[in-house]
Measured scan of single mutants.
Amino acid sequence: ETGKELVLALYDYQEKSPREVTMKKGDILTLLNSTNKDWWKVEVNDRQGFVPAAYVKKL
């Protein structure tokens, strides 16, 4: 879809709370919100949640 910003997972991340999502290094995720410098909201496999901003980079 146009207008979607994507990020690349630089590291594996295992969710530690229900508000977070698990990702694997190399995953491409849809970026939903990056206003917080530490935690970015992403969508992966129809799930939305937060990942550490340092673990992903914008494509």
Rank of each mutant, 00 (worst) to 15 (best):
A53Y: 02
L59C: 11
S17P: 05
S34V: 07
Q48C: 10
G26N: 07
N45D: 14
D12I: 02
W39H: 03
P18Q: 09
F50W: 15
E1R: 02
T30V: 15
L10R: 04
W40F: 07
K24N: 08
G49K: 02
P52K: 03
W40G: 00
D38S: 10
Q48F: 07
N33A: 10
G49S: 02
I28T: 06
V51T: 02
Y13C: 02
E15T: 07
T35Y: 10
A9E: 00
V51D: 02
N33V: 09
N33K: 06
T2Q: 14
K58Q: 09
A9C: 12
E5R: 10
A53T: 06
E20A: 05
Q14A: 14
T2W: 13
M23W: 02
W39F: 07
W39I: 02
D46P: 05
V21P: 01
P18G: 09
N36F: 08
K57S: 11
Y55I: 06
K58L: 14
L32M: 07
P52C: 03
N45P: 10
W39S: 03
Y55D: 03
K37F: 08
P52D: 02
V56G: 01
K58D: 05
L59Q: 06
K41F: 15
T22S: 15
A54N: 13
L31D: 00
T35H: 11
R19E: 13
L59K: 04
G3K: 15
L31F: 03
L10N: 03
V21M: 13
D46L: 10
A54S: 15
L29R: 00
V56D: 01
L32A: 03
L32G: 01
D38V: 14
D27M: 14
T35C: 12
L59M: 11
V51L: 02
N45C: 10
L10M: 10
R19M: 14
T35K: 11
K58M: 10
V21K: 02
K57R: 13
F50T: 03
V44R: 15
G3A: 14
A54C: 12
G49V: 05
K24E: 06
D27T: 08
K37I: 10
N33L: 09
K57E: 13
P18M: 10
Q48T: 11
L29A: 08
P52Y: 03
L8A: 05
K25F: 05
P18F: 08
Y11M: 11
K16P: 04
R47H: 08
Y13A: 00
L8V: 15
M23A: 02
L10K: 05
Y55N: 05
L31A: 02
W40C: 04
W39D: 01
K4P: 12
A9I: 02
A53P: 04
A54W: 09
W40V: 06
V51N: 00
A9T: 04
E15L: 07
L31M: 03
F50N: 04
L31N: 00
W40I: 05
K37Y: 08
Y13R: 03
Q14K: 13
L59I: 14
R47W: 04
A53C: 07
Q14E: 14
F50I: 07
L29S: 02
E1V: 13
D46C: 12
L59R: 03
P18K: 09
W39N: 02
V44K: 15
A53I: 04
W40L: 04
Y13D: 01
E5I: 15
V7K: 01
K57G: 09
W40E: 01
D38K: 14
E20Y: 05
G3W: 13
E5P: 10
S17N: 13
N33T: 08
A9F: 01
A53W: 01
K41A: 08
W39A: 02
D12V: 02
V21D: 01
Y11S: 07
V7A: 11
K41I: 14
Y13G: 00
I28A: 03
Y11V: 11
T2F: 13
W40A: 04
T2A: 13
E1P: 14
P52V: 02
L10Y: 03
L29C: 10
K41Q: 12
V42A: 02
V51M: 01
L6D: 04
T35F: 10
I28M: 07
A9Q: 01
Q14L: 14
V42P: 00
K24C: 09
E20G: 12
R19V: 10
G49M: 05
N45G: 15
A54K: 14
Y11H: 10
A54R: 14
V7I: 09
K4H: 13
G26D: 06
T30C: 09
F50Q: 03
E15D: 05
W39E: 04
M23T: 03
E5Y: 11
A53Q: 06
G3T: 15
K24P: 01
E1I: 14
S17E: 08
S34F: 07
A53M: 05
L10A: 04
D38Y: 15
F50V: 07
R19Y: 14
G26R: 02
N33W: 07
Q48E: 10
D12Q: 03
M23E: 00
P18E: 12
G3N: 10
E20S: 06
L10C: 07
K57D: 07
T22W: 04
